[in-house]
């Protein structure tokens, strides 16, 4: 009887925690895909700090994973993670780098001119191909390289930092400014990440690229 009562309490407590996490994730930016493999958490594009010849693209998905939930988080074989690169200033992708998981590997194609542009994509499976084993929670990072393109896929600490709680309180009218010190809403949480390093020479000759990441779901 006592045990049953304890179990009920534990269940209620974990439900409450789940609800709070759900709410905070839901209020970020993607009501329809929240908590799914399509939910992009963040995006970065930067020059390799030790090699000016290479650019690095990094996308994170499925944010706000607790350490206990990280081992079970997985990429989805029906969800394409696509890095888009416009090198002539019209905000239409001239090149894509496509990452699609298959059988424990992240398979990356490109950079390559896509056959379909905009909201629809097909996988450019004849392009330069890198197969990186997806790093599992607790393993050291596994990477793979082909033709100068290097790939990592797997769980990482969420690199984003922001007092989202204070921002929401300001918007909600329960605070008039940020606290000092602030509280990093993303501290102690993990994400799934795909990191791809590419020689600039494979991205065209423009001095400014317009770039973005998309998740695309198989129809």
């Amino acid at each position: 009887m006592m045990t049953k009562f304890k179990i009920t309490l534990l269940t209620l407590a974990s439900m409450a925690v789940g609800f709070i996490l759900f709410l905070s994730a839901d209020h970020i930016d993607a009501p329809k895909v929240t908590d799914s493999a399509q939910d992009i958490a963040d995006y970065f594009a930067f020059q390799n700090p030790n090699n000016n010849d290479n650019l690095v693209f990094a996308a994170t998905v499925q944010g706000l994973l607790s350490p206990g939930a990280t081992a079970d988080a997985a990429f989805d074989e029906n969800t394409l993670i696509e890095f888009n690169i416009d090198n002539d200033g019209d905000n239409i992708e001239d090149l894509v780098i496509q990452a699609i998981p298959r059988d424990g590997k992240m398979i990356v194609f490109g950079p390559v001119a896509p056959s379909m542009k905009g909201t629809e994509s097909s996988i450019m499976s004849a392009a330069n191909r890198v197969e990186a084993e997806i790093t599992l929670y607790g393993e050291s990072a596994k990477t793979a390289t082909n033709n100068g393109v290097t790939v990592f896929a797997g769980p990482r600490d969420d690199p984003f930092f922001f007092d989202l709680g204070a921002y929401s309180a300001i918007l909600g009218g329960t605070a008039t400014g940020f606290s000092n010190p602030g509280t990093d809403t993303f501290a102690g949480t993990n994400v799934l990440s795909v990191v791809i390093e590419v020689p600039k020479s494979q991205l065209g000759s423009a001095t400014t690229l317009n770039t973005w990441v998309e998740t695309k779901l198989k129809r």
Binding site: V33, R102, M116, E120, S121, S122, I123, E214, T215, K218
Partner: peptide
């Protein structure tokens, strides 16, 4: 592996926190 089919945009991001 099977790489055929059409994939439709579900989420997008460029600059941080714009949406």
């Amino acid at each position: 592996f099977d790489f055929t089919g059409v994939y439709d945009q579900a989420d997008q991001k460029g600059r941080p926190a714009i949406n």
